[in-house]
Design a protein around this nucleic acid. Structure first.
Lengths: 246, 246
DNA sequence: ACGAAACTGCGTAGCTGATACGCTGACTAG
DNA sequence: CTAGTCAGCGTATCAGCTACGCAGTTTCGT
């Protein structure tokens, strides 16, 4: 059976289905090596540090050598985006709620190690094998629920959004903290100074409740917020299912 | 009363509290003009098009003139981030749920017009006057609820995340669509081709349910997903309040 | 077995963009 | 009036992406 729909070029690349040329010298570089090197650079020094030159240097090659394997830097970024997420956990046997919770925590953990992930330009809906595997994994957790297929997609989509937000915020706050730790100790103070209790009554109440005065625990607080948000969201899903079933 | 905590420099800038020099020629450029021009460029051609040179050209100035008013491009981006969100809606009189819904839809609408907002580097927790005003607005909607102050922050934080996700996805899908409209018509087909129903049963079911075959309505679908996610989340908040109060 | 075709790796060079430095001339406090 | 300040900007440097084309390598067709 021939491909009735020839795959878009980047998709073929993502799935390793780009046919190798038969003539000419064998490539001494593989896409895999390049992507691995790029991921390494991003993990170590952030996405901004990923330049074609640096990745090439990491491999002991010249900058332009990479362009024989990758059409553009954007294409490399796309490949990195699929390489970053590897394999989803096995959720079989868990009820949908436990499954989705595990799923969400797993993805957060995975992405925390490649927190540049959320900075990648999106090139449309997911098409990479690993990203689709995670998508599949989440959908599978919802198999035996009364949700319509489209609703399942909606739930997973929103879950992904929550996860991205958590990872992004974690990374940015961490970076900001590393840049100037002193600033964090003063966030509460600075707010207190800026905020007129008349114009900002609700915010003032939060500030004086001391919610912003524990500068040391940024990431703990953030992870707490995420778990809280996640459980609220899943509560909502549960309520929706009951309404729909009953 | 003197400032016990001298404001960090960028914060002073954000709040227009940087003192003007008393000697020398008067500036013929204001920060406001610069920020407005930069926002204009970003609205028209995207954040990537915002270069110091382009913004300066927009104002009929030389590139380096901007650096008298802004310490770096990052500082300009920070200012853009506060300028983009202007003034939050008045929610007084609404119950918390209606209030937060209005709030979320307003922010989405606002950010849709400056959808580069979600690409800005975050420089820590919010400090700009407009961003804080939105924060205040959301917190105020939760005033008369049984939530603790820290929980209110958590709820709003997660709401913001959902909003960012919606805006980001909308922008990226739109861009991707504009780049190659044909690709969207084929997303369902491409998936169908890639996905082995044995390895991807749940995804296959979604694909064959036709959930991905209406390429024309990307943004409608997305907005739908957002409203769905928002209502699920708020259902969860409601359930939590009841549990807490009862 | 041999020439042509198909390739790979890479050197070079062009272009865009951020920004350091220092000059010129304007404005103001005393 | 004059010294001190400051705005605008020309110039130059550096980083990064990538188009182009050469030189050497491998394979196919005959």
């Amino acid at each position: 059976m021939p491909d009735s729909v020839p795959l878009p070029d980047e998709v073929a690349l993502l799935w390793g289905r780009r046919e190798a040329p038969r003539r000419g010298p064998k490539a001494t570089l593989t896409i895999d090596e390049i992507v691995r090197a790029a991921v390494g650079v991003a993990d170590a020094d952030g996405l901004a540090a990923v330049s074609m030159a640096k990745v090439a240097a990491e491999l002991g090659r010249s900058t332009m050598a990479l362009y024989r394997h990758v059409r553009s830097k954007d294409e490399l970024l796309m490949l990195m985006g699929d390489a970053a997420v590897a394999t989803p956990p096995d959720l079989s046997g868990a009820d949908w709620r436990t499954g989705l919770t595990t799923w969400a925590l797993s993805i957060v953990e995975t992405l925390r190690e490649h927190s540049w992930f959320t900075q990648l330009p999106l090139s449309g809906p997911p098409v990479g094998p690993n990203n689709l595997a995670w998508f599949e994994s989440a959908l599978r957790a919802l198999t035996d629920t009364p949700l319509a297929e489209l609703e399942k997609v909606g739930v997973v989509q929103n879950l992904i959004t929550l996860v991205h937000g958590e990872v992004r915020l974690g990374r940015e706050l961490q970076r900001s903290f590393d840049e100037d730790p002193a600033k964090f100790g003063r966030y509460g103070e600075v707010l207190a100074e800026l905020i007129d209790p008349v114009r900002f009554p609700a915010l003032s109440r939060v500030v004086s409740s001391g919610a912003f005065s524990e500068p040391e625990m940024i990431n703990q607080d953030l992870a707490e917020d995420f778990r809280f948000g996640l459980s609220l969201f899943l509560d909502g899903v549960e309520a929706y299912m009951q309404r729909r079933a009953g």
